[in-house]
Write a protein that binds this DNA or RNA. Structure first.
Length: 492
RNA sequence: GGCGCGUUGGAGAAGUGGCUUAACUCACCAGCCUUUCACGCUGGCAUCCAGGGGUUCGAAUCCCCUACGCGUCACCA
């Protein structure tokens, strides 16, 4: 029985990206499905761009989405430490070994030389790669340059004229020529190993069994395999999942980036998306379930997920679908949760005070509940409420209704006005009572009654239940709207 | 430019040689349900799988070419 150990290894150079979250999710699914281990590690060898704030953001987002790691930063584990900068001695040992065996060598070429070399190669239409100039330096020459303190890097001596085949779980066998790779750098001039080298050591020492990551890493994989080979380690199983594409301003599909608006998990969090909706949506990006159901809890996803059902073609980030999924989860959410997620938006919009009184809280709770069937994310709440509480401008549809059905409309609305003047306070039940009374007294019911009232009060044919609308608007506003409508109708 | 990957409807996407008269989901349309709206339910929505050639009794599925899209070629990860 194979021991499943998977990992998510972001670099802390920015907030958790949607694509990163999906990679993490797929790794998490597979680990949990096989009762394995989900490791969380940080690749922070880029000193310039790495920062603690990003690390925190990534951790917070992972937790918010419900991906708790079994092993890794903060909580430790048997194969730590879990930040690359804390693992330098592990890399050093491996590098010394490679150097001693002649599988790696010092390179003293200056950056300028390298750049001009690269440009020349590109002009000739060749794949730019290192010429191997320093490969044949003698021990003495090397030592001399080292003693003089010449800046240098360390390169891997990649076998020439060979083929490296990546056995990819989603794309099948993909082969690369080592000649297209060249002797790449494994240690930078500041003495810190480069990603392609460190990642291998980490995955080996942490006993990672499967590596699920974005397709952009596919062309890196042969380099990493060259490192595994040089070190004499077994290669883990790879699975490269397709990129997430977005539509840019011109409608073209490109890799999701800043050009497509929000790309970080927090951005969606702030817009009022539910974590389970994002998890569900992300799972559907490049993976498809068996049946016709598309709404899944985390547990169901873990049970259903399999790499066989992961698609090779790029996945498109469809915000409309995300909204639909989110709307479905909002409808299912409990009143407490709705309030928890919705209230901040109402406060921000000034619809509810910072420290609301009980009555305000109740109003907020009922309003959110009334609108839960009509929103796709919580940020829509204030606009809708404001719309119902501001003056209505009646359009042609309303005018047409009045013309066609003048008598009924006037009867209903006059009765409504009378009732509202009679009832000084209003709640859901009293409003239902009013509707019933109007129906009994006028003999008008059904669509003639409900649709007329809705159109008169909101100018729209669609919206929440009328008794709930009454709570959102309140009695005074409803009376005002009713009078305004009557004036409007009389002038038609 | 080299290397690598992809291309199924308005959109996402299933399908890996015959069960496909191309699932399912979103959107859209029609009907039912609901005293209204929404939810839910039922039905409609690709004569066709980027284009061309080939293999085969049979291809969206295999092979070749072309086009287009994307990724990658860093002392970034």
């Amino acid at each position: 029985m194979e021991n499943y150990r998977l990992r998510f290894a972001p670099s802390p150079t920015g907030p958790l990206h949607i694509g990163g979250a999906r990679s993490a999710l797929f790794n998490y699914f597979l680990a949990k499905k096989h009762k394995g281990c989900f490791v969380m590690r940080m690749e922070d060898t880029d000193l310039e761009r790495s920062n603690k704030a990003s690390e925190k953001n990534i951790k917070d987002s992972l937790k918010w989405l419900g991906m708790d790691w079994d092993e890794g930063i903060d909580i430790g584990g048997d194969y730590g430490p879990y930040r690359q900068m804390e693992r330098l001695d592990i890399y050093k040992e491996a590098i010394d070994k490679l150097l001693a065996e002649g599988k790696a060598y010092y390179c003293f070429c200056s950056e300028d030389d390298l750049t001009s070399e690269k440009e020349a190669q590109q002009q000739r239409g060749e794949t730019p790669k290192y010429s191997g100039k320093c490969r044949n330096l003698t021990k003495e020459q090397q030592q001399e340059l080292l003693d003089k303190g010449t800046p240098h890097v360390i390169r891997l001596n990649v076998p020439k004229g060979e083929q490296i085949v990546v056995h990819d779980l989603v794309r099948g066998d993909v082969s690369f020529e080592t000649d297209g790779i060249g002797d790449f750098i494994i240690v930078k001039s500041d003495g810190i190993p480069v990603y392609n080298f460190a990642v291998v050591l980490d995955d080996v020492t942490m006993k990672i069994s499967h590596i699920i990551r974005g397709e952009e890493h596919l062309s890196n994989t042969p380099r990493q395999i060259a490192v595994y080979n040089a070190l004499g380690y077994d290669v883990p199983k790879f699975a490269h999942i397709s990129l997430i594409l977005g539509r840019d301003d011109e409608g073209k599909m490109t890799k999701m980036s800043k050009r497509h608006g929000s790309t970080s998990v927090v951005a969606y969090q702030q817009q009022g998306f539910l974590p389970e909706a994002i998890v569900n949506f992300l799972a559907l990006l490049g993976w498809s379930p068996d049946g016709e159901e598309e709404l899944f809890t985390m547990d169901e996803l873990i049970k259903q997920f399999s790499l066989e059902k992961v698609s090779k073609s790029p996945a498109v980030f469809d915000i409309e679908k995300l909204k639909w999924i989110n709307g479905m989860y909002i409808r299912k959410a409990s009143a407490e949760r709705l309030l928890e997620y919705g209230l901040p938006f109402l406060k921000k919009a000034g619809l509810v005070k910072r420290n609301p009184k009980m009555a305000e809280m109740i109003w907020a709770m009922m309003s959110i509940d009334a609108l839960k069937n009509h929103i796709t994310c919580f940020s829509e709440l204030p606009d809708i409420i404001n719309k119902y509480r501001s003056k209505v401008s009646y359009d042609d549809e309303v005018a047409a209704m009045v013309k066609e059905n003048r008598e009924t409309v006037m009867t209903v609305m006059n009765a409504m006005k009378a009732k509202l003047e009679e009832y000084k306070t209003l709640n859901s039940d009293t409003y239902k009572q009013i509707l019933k009374e109007i129906k009994n007294e006028t003999g008008i019911g059904g669509r003639d009654l409900f649709h007329t009232i809705r159109l008169a009060k909101t100018g729209e044919g669609e919206g929440p239940d009328l008794d709930k609308l009454a709570v959102i608007m309140g009695r005074d506003l409803m009376l005002e709207r009713t009078k305004e409508f009557l004036t409007f109708a009389e002038n038609i």
